[in-house]
Simulated assay, not measured.
Amino acid sequence: MQRALVVVSPNERSNRILREAGELAAGSGAELVVLTVLPDEEFERTRSALADVGSSDVVYGIDQATESATRKAKRLAREALDDLDVDYRVVADIGPEVDSVLETAEAESCDHLFVSGRRRSPTGKLLSRDVTQTVMLNFDGPVTVLLGEESETEDDSNRKSRALA
């Protein structure tokens, strides 16, 4: 592993996947690229909500969204990787998640991916393909996936993590 892409979002599993990737990268001397993706729908929802407020002082465009996402991802990376000897940098993108992950991995010459996913029932797997599964099927290299439960919510994930600590 020379350079790995770690896909994060603001949740407890992102801290865990960052830590795992960081430990492996530190042990092998690899570099990490930390990617956060703001899906188009979320960007539009936020932009619409701010436009509805009606303040002419509020400007929310691609630059502001990217800057905000980058700040959040930097904070996550700093918290997870602070005590490790690993080089990393943060990249933010707005768009379809699968495309963003695969395009960033290619542009950054990443040879390994780290992503969080959900455990899903066999029926759930048949009904819809999720981002993690699509990325795994389309990335030409190893993919490490940290799984959570299908029905696990953000609050459930945080409670489980605190209970284990």
Rank of each mutant, 00 (worst) to 15 (best):
Gln2Trp: 01
Val6Arg: 05
Val7Phe: 01
Ser14Thr: 08
Ser14Glu: 04
Arg16Thr: 11
Ile17Val: 05
Ile17His: 10
Ile17Ser: 04
Ala21Lys: 14
Ala25Ser: 15
Ala25Trp: 08
Ala26His: 14
Ala26Gly: 08
Gly27Phe: 09
Ser28Phe: 07
Glu31Arg: 14
Val33His: 02
Val34Asn: 10
Thr36Gly: 03
Thr36Pro: 02
Val37Leu: 06
Leu38Gly: 01
Pro39Val: 03
Glu41Phe: 06
Glu44Gly: 07
Arg45Thr: 05
Thr46His: 09
Ser48Arg: 09
Ala49Gln: 12
Leu50Gly: 09
Ala51Arg: 15
Asp52Thr: 14
Val53Glu: 13
Gly54Pro: 10
Ser55Tyr: 10
Ser56His: 14
Ser56Gly: 13
Val58Thr: 11
Val58Met: 14
Tyr60Glu: 05
Gly61Ser: 05
Gln64Phe: 01
Ser68Pro: 03
Ser68Phe: 08
Ala73Val: 00
Ala73Phe: 01
Lys74Gln: 07
Lys74Ile: 01
Leu76Cys: 09
Arg78Leu: 10
Leu81Arg: 02
Asp82Tyr: 07
Asp82His: 09
Leu84Ile: 07
Leu84Thr: 08
Asp85Glu: 08
Val86Cys: 12
Asp87Gln: 14
Arg89Gln: 00
Arg89Ile: 00
Ala92Asp: 04
Ile94Gln: 01
Pro96Ser: 03
Glu97Arg: 09
Asp99Ser: 04
Val101Ile: 06
Val101Thr: 04
Glu103Arg: 11
Thr104Gln: 09
Ala105Phe: 01
Glu106Gly: 12
Ala107His: 07
Ala107Met: 10
Ala107Asn: 11
Ser109Trp: 00
Ser109Lys: 05
Asp111Ala: 04
Leu113Lys: 14
Phe114Asp: 07
Val115Gly: 01
Ser116Trp: 10
Gly117Ala: 13
Gly117Val: 03
Gly117Lys: 10
Arg120Phe: 00
Pro122Trp: 14
Thr123Asp: 14
Lys125Met: 12
Ser128Glu: 07
Val131Leu: 10
Val131Ser: 06
Thr132Cys: 11
Thr132Lys: 14
Thr132Pro: 09
Gln133Pro: 05
Phe139Pro: 11
Gly141Pro: 14
Pro142Lys: 15
Val143Thr: 13
Val143Leu: 12
Leu146Ser: 14
Leu147Cys: 10
Glu149Cys: 05
Ser151Glu: 15
Glu154Met: 15
Asp155Thr: 15
Asp156Tyr: 08
Ser157Trp: 02
Arg159Cys: 07
Arg159Leu: 10
Lys160Tyr: 09
Ala163Asn: 03
Ala163Asp: 00
Ala163Lys: 05
Ala163Arg: 08
Leu164Lys: 09
